[in-house]
Write a protein that binds this DNA or RNA. Structure first.
Lengths: 135, 135
DNA sequence: TCTCTGCTTGACGTTTACGTAAAGGTAAAG
DNA sequence: CTTTACCTTTACGTAAACGTCAAGCAGAGA
């Protein structure tokens, strides 16, 4: 037994609920709500919640999903997808199929987004032309 | 007075609530809900609602906004923006400022979307590699 | 005239995503 | 030892976006 390699850094940084809530600009109620829905599962030290790097990563994913307008339940399935076990070929094929579905959804959104931006640009051009044409 | 030019086609096609609901894949309740919020305002023939081309355009805008995850109230401000009077310079400048805000929002969403797609692609690559490496 | 179909207006129910007390545990500081 | 600062659970409240009856009008056809 040679003990732990010091060259393999262990990330044992932790945060309290107030710290991550502040940092991500949400309330502690929101963070706990995500936990109730199973989107994050912080360590418990006694009764208190201890958040690790992994929880921060998940929270960032959740909030991006929210900015994109996904419901929390759907966000949960996405997050779960990212860490389902992929040991067997059948599992991998399932995950790959799910990935295709997700991508189709995201690309639909991208098309909608591009369309909206094109329309907005056209509208701005019209408005600027109107403004220039004014006395 | 020479009467109406027949070369200027008047679009007087109309639809019932059931027709547009079916066509856009929503319920009549949804269509009426959007009307309650002031997002569409169909003509009334007696007591019945008559929908024109203009209402269809709006409904398409609403549904795209929903796919993009915008709340209905925000969608209403966007639609209103598209047909606020723009006769005076002050009005035009206000509209142009609003356009800039909208674009900033949409571009944030686009960044989030691109990030999500990049992550998804990377994840798929990993999964495919795992699958190839299996017995 | 009766009935059927489709439309109408309420109005209460439901789900999602939290907000907001209420009531209490714990640990460090004074 | 008490106060203060955070943390906890429990639980009811709320806004948004419809769903879901209920009850009634109105025109078309048998």
């Amino acid at each position: 037994m040679i003990g732990r390699m010091t060259s393999a850094p262990v990330d044992d940084a932790t945060w309290t609920i107030a710290e991550i809530a502040d940092e991500f600009g949400v309330t502690h109620r929101t963070v706990r709500h995500y936990e109730e829905l199973g989107l994050i599962s912080p360590e418990r030290r006694g009764t208190s919640r201890i958040y690790h790097r992994r929880d921060r990563t998940r929270l960032a994913l959740i909030l991006r999903g929210k900015r994109l307008g996904f419901p929390l339940e759907e966000i949960r399935t996405i997050i779960d997808l990212y860490d389902t076990p992929r040991g067997k070929a059948s599992q991998l094929r399932y995950v790959l199929a799910q990935i295709d579905e997700r991508r189709a959804d995201l690309e639909q959104r991208r098309r909608d987004l591009e369309d909206a931006l094109v329309e907005l640009d056209a509208f701005e051009t019209r408005c600027r032309a109107d403004l220039d044409r004014l006395p």
